[in-house]
Amino acid sequence: MISIPFEKHTLQNGLEIITHVDKTVPTVAVNVWYHVGSKNEVPGKTGFAHLFEHVMFEGSKNHDKDYFGPLQEIGAMVNGSTTNDRTNYWENLPSNYLELALWLESDRMGFLLEALDQDRFDLQREVVKNERRQSYENRPYGMAHLKLQELLFPTPHPYNWPTIGSQEDLDGAGIGDVKEFFRNFYHPSNSSISVAGDIDPDSTLELVDKYFGNLPPGPTINRFHKMDSTLKGQTWVTLEDSVHLPRLYLAWPTTPEFTQEQAALDVLSVIMADGRSSRLERSLVYEKQFARDIRAYHHGQEISGEFHIIATANPGRTTEEIYKEIQESLDDI
């Protein structure tokens, strides 16, 4: 079992700081996590968490311009991501520029709204709408995941809608709605920051306190807890797409992450379809050659989980044949 030494502190405003020392190379990794994702949205206003990930790179009160520029000029790698449960922003950069990254992160945490105007908002909304087209609507098999999510977690489950949101909700989003979302979730008491690499923990903590310590904590947030899917029985849906080979998607709702079941389901996915010696890949891809490819994975999340098996049929083979083989293999477990 890998054990990574770290120190954890909490500022008076609720911001959690995690530091880890690794002086192998003179670099540092800064990662800011906000405990907000698409599950914190409401029907009719979906896609806000991911939209704000984009808006956060547009500039803030004291750095009122593109966020990438000053970091990429020093050779930093910069990005962010959004899931159902959280949003994060990260920089990997030379360790002597740590203070720059902390200043930029603190400025957009505390003073983003002073720089957010309608033009910037409209620009990033169009970027996100185009991302949805590229990643889902105009991609082969792309809409399958969006439909599967909605079937796997029927309303009112907050995993029912995709992180990317819908085109209709993105069109209907107003800058006032997004600002309210920021005020509710983007504040020190709903965030954590990790700093790992070529650092001194004490001086790093002082820097974090210098730039984040005066930011006010935000409002209390009503947290979601374990929420099972209300899916009852088996549901089948057929989608038509401009593809040459049919693909089968199987999914089951499971338990949240960090449960005993999560480890077992992770192991099951490896046994079923991870590599040539796995049961389904050996049988369906190499021996019987029913499938062009097959994979399985378990995705544990904060309030619920999901287990997937995905297989693409070979020419002349059907998804019904593949489903029968998969079901027989599962029955043997």
Score class of each variant (00 low, 15 high):
Y159E: 07
L146Y: 03
A144T: 05
S166K: 04
A144R: 00
T155Y: 13
L148R: 05
I164W: 04
W161A: 09
L151W: 01
L151Y: 07
L148Q: 12
P156D: 14
T155S: 15
N160M: 00
L148C: 13
T163Y: 04
W161P: 11
P156S: 09
P156A: 04
P154Q: 06
L170S: 07
D171F: 01
Q167D: 13
G142E: 07
Q167F: 09
Y159N: 04
G165A: 00
S166E: 10
P158F: 05
L148S: 11
L146R: 01
N160V: 03
L148K: 01
M143D: 10
L170Y: 01
L146W: 00
Q167S: 12
K147M: 14
L146Q: 07
E150Q: 15
Y159C: 02
L151S: 13
I164N: 05
H157E: 13
T155F: 08
Y159W: 02
P162F: 02
I164A: 10
E168C: 03
E150M: 06
T163K: 03
Y159K: 03
L152P: 11
N160L: 04
L152Q: 01
L152F: 02
E150R: 08
N160S: 14
L170E: 07
W161Q: 14
E150S: 15
T155Q: 15
L152R: 01
N160T: 09
N160A: 14
K147I: 13
L170K: 02
L146P: 09
P154C: 06
Y159M: 05
A144K: 02
T163A: 14
W161F: 11
P154R: 03
D169G: 08
L148V: 05
H145K: 11
G142Y: 03
M143R: 15
H145V: 07
H145T: 14
E168S: 06
L151E: 14
L151P: 10
D171M: 07
W161L: 01
P162A: 11
Q167L: 14
M143I: 15
Q149A: 11
W161G: 06
G165L: 03
L170P: 12
I164M: 05
T163H: 03
P162T: 14
F153E: 08
M143W: 06
G142W: 01
D169W: 01
L146M: 14
L152T: 03
M143S: 13
P154F: 06
E168Q: 08
T155V: 13
T163L: 03
G165Q: 06
S166I: 01
K147H: 14
S166C: 08
L152S: 08
E168K: 01
P158Q: 03
A144M: 15
N160E: 12
H145E: 15
E168Y: 04
G142P: 12
D169E: 11
M143K: 15
H145W: 10
K147L: 13
K147D: 13
P156W: 03
S166M: 08
D171P: 11
L152D: 05
P158T: 09
T155K: 15
H145M: 07
L170I: 03
L146T: 06
K147E: 14
L148P: 10
G142F: 05
P154H: 02
N160I: 07
H157W: 05
G142V: 07
H157K: 01
P158E: 07
H157C: 08
E150A: 10
P154L: 02
P162V: 07
E150N: 15
W161D: 09
L151H: 10
D171Y: 09
S166F: 15
I164S: 08
I164G: 10
A144G: 10
L170C: 08
E168H: 00
L146I: 14
